[in-house]
């Protein structure tokens, strides 16, 4: 399967890249390529111009400071997974990186690319021949959604591994745009819009991820049939801080692959606050969390199954953190 034709550029600075990106709607940025090139081969993305960010220096770093950890957007997932610093301070982040695809995907894929990966759908991530059986969907430039026929919008799902683990840690992102930089919570990068899932403004490119110092414990649980290669059927990250006597001070639960962006179970989190984590509470929280996700039939796995597994994963995560106390 050949790539479509395009113009190829290698800017030397992020600012330059951002200006190029802003100047043309049919320009895309390339980092590791493991997501973009597949979509280009499938002709769901046919850019006029490809900007290779890899030639830009200083975007690949893991730097510890007093106020937290900064990770350059071009840092590879493999470097994140094998960083002693991350393994020690944010093991769930390292673990999530180590569960993306397989070894080569991690060696190629970057943090920025993983966070900005396209949403996925069984009707979208297919060849032109496959998609040709139906009329084009919203995401492929058409005007309907095959997942939910009359809903009027695209239901494709965010399926990344990194976002949940970083959002529960209150990670922030720095983006560079034509008019300068912006700094905002990672959670806000996602606008829950399947067709255009990122809130980046014209020309903006992810530059750096910042993770504040964290107390408490974090987990990343990924559910899939085979323990490699696959995207999550669904996954979740749980972060919890307790008072040392079993009472929850703060909890964050964020899912992947069950909505148009990473989905945070806000009410379940509230339910946990100030409570003792006993069996009954675990049961209640997992029931609540499932109510807050909205999986659709975007993959070969049914929404009902995803809900069932979501409850099981939440329970497992809560039990594991409780037992780790």
């Amino acid at each position: 399967m050949r790539l479509p034709q395009f113009e190829y550029v290698e800017p030397k600075t992020l600012k330059e890249a951002s200006k190029m990106l802003a100047s043309d709607k049919k320009t895309v940025v390339l980092a590791g390529g493991t997501d973009l090139l597949v979509n280009m081969k499938h002709r769901v993305i046919e850019p006029r111009r490809v900007i290779n960010l890899k030639a830009i220096p200083k975007l690949d770093h893991i730097t510890a400071g007093k106020d937290g950890l900064r990770i350059g957007a071009l840092t590879t997932l493999h470097d994140i997974a094998s960083s002693p610093l991350i393994q020690e301070q944010y093991p769930a982040v390292g673990q999530a990186a180590g569960e993306v695809g397989a070894y080569a995907h991690q060696a190629m894929g970057t943090l920025g690319g993983n966070l900005c990966q396209e949403n996925r759908c069984r009707f979208y991530n297919q060849s032109p021949f496959w998609r040709g059986v139906r009329s084009p969907c919203y995401k492929a430039g058409g005007d309907l959604c095959h997942v939910v026929k009359k809903s009027g919008k695209c239901h494709s799902a965010y399926c990344g591994d990194m976002a949940p683990a970083l959002i529960v840690l209150d990670a922030q992102v720095k983006v560079t745009g034509p008019d300068g930089e912006r700094f905002f919570p990672l959670k806000k990068l996602y606008n829950q819009n399947g067709k255009k899932p990122l809130s980046l403004k014209t020309g903006e490119i992810l530059k750096e991820v910042f993770i504040p110092p964290s107390s408490g414990k974090t987990l990343y649980l990924k559910w899939r049939l085979r323990d490699s290669l696959e995207f999550p059927i669904l996954s979740l990250s749980l972060h919890m801080e307790t008072d040392g006597k079993g009472q929850v001070k703060k909890a964050r639960i964020v899912f992947s692959s069950v909505g148009e962006g990473p989905v945070e179970a806000v009410s379940a989190e509230k339910m946990l606050k100030g409570k003792l984590l006993d069996e009954r509470m675990i049961e209640k929280v997992s029931e609540q969390a499932v109510k807050e996700i909205s999986p659709m039939r975007t993959s070969i796995h049914s929404p009902a199954y995803k809900r069932k597994m979501a409850a099981i994963l939440v329970r497992q995560a809560l039990e594991e953190l409780r037992n780790a106390e």
Binding site: R122, W130, R226, D227, S228, L229, E230, F231, S299, I300
Partner: peptide, 14 residues
């Protein structure tokens, strides 16, 4: 529905 190694699960070394 699953004409790829992503969705058709031939066993990996794992």
């Amino acid at each position: 529905l699953n004409p790829s190694f992503l969705d058709y699960g031939i066993p990996t070394a794992m």
